[in-house]
Design a protein around this nucleic acid. Structure first.
Lengths: 130, 130
DNA sequence: ATGGAACACTTGGCATTCTATGTTGTCAAT
DNA sequence: ATTGACAACATAGAATGCCAAGTGTTCCAT
């Protein structure tokens, strides 16, 4: 998979994962394939995959959880793909952001309702609070 | 030099170099000590120093020049030292909106986790399925 | 003296190996 | 049936070794 262009392999992997995140193939909250799987997919050693993940981690695009996996950060889509410098928000983006905010709030309310119903149905123990 | 605190060695070196840059000990355009010198100074292996420099490189605080050295970026001062998340610098209210969005997303993720746990708990009960 | 080879030093990239630690599923013993 | 041991798998950090390639110096042969 890694093309023998001038670009280093670990940066090619960074680009590829970044593309998948932008395309929605990897949504916020999703887990990346494991390091072993990525090694297999790109046909590189673990050090290369680790280097790629390290870049994504320092950019906060991704967060690692020991023993579980590496997960796409919730705010990953808000981080510009290329950042020569921290970019300013374009004036036209406010509407999209507000849309996103409303959408997420709806999801939050829905989840809260389902959660309350489930909790009252499952937990009859008095020690259960919240 | 590297303290045996919980913080990884390569991040301690990142912090230290960052401090020196902020303090002016390392001015923009200056060269960092060579990797070998940093290995000697901090009493760590080259991989740790390389990891630290890699972090500074992806943050664009520092730029490496093959065969010559690693130099403090001209714009390093403008890059905020601490970035729990590389947040977009906010012209006006956009930053607050993004703050809200990230906050709500975190809440959404937490609720989703609780819900998943509850649902799987319910699924394991033989009396009820979905 | 000048050209060029040789060498030392530098960053960058990659592989391999080890240890530590966290998570999860399985499976046997109680 | 519950608990506990254990194995499998995950990320994280670190050490080491190797090679490629750019830079600078030194020093010798012409």
């Amino acid at each position: 998979m890694v093309e023998k262009s001038g670009r280093p392999a670990y940066l090619q992997i960074v680009d590829d994962l970044r593309r998948q995140i932008d395309a929605g193939t990897l949504a916020p909250g999703d887990a990346l394939p494991s390091i072993a799987q990525l090694c297999d997919r790109y046909d590189v050693s673990a050090s290369v995959v680790k280097a790629a993940i390290s870049v994504l981690r320092t950019k906060a695009i991704v967060v690692g959880q020991q023993g579980k996996g590496v997960f796409v950060s919730e705010a990953a889509i808000a981080i510009p793909s290329d950042d020569p410098e921290p970019e300013l928000v374009s004036p036209g983006a406010a509407g999209e952001i507000l849309d996103e905010l409303a959408k997420v709030r709806r999801g939050l309310k829905d989840l809260g309702d389902r959660l309350t119903a489930l909790e009252s149905a499952v937990f009859q123990e008095p020690k259960r609070s919240r």
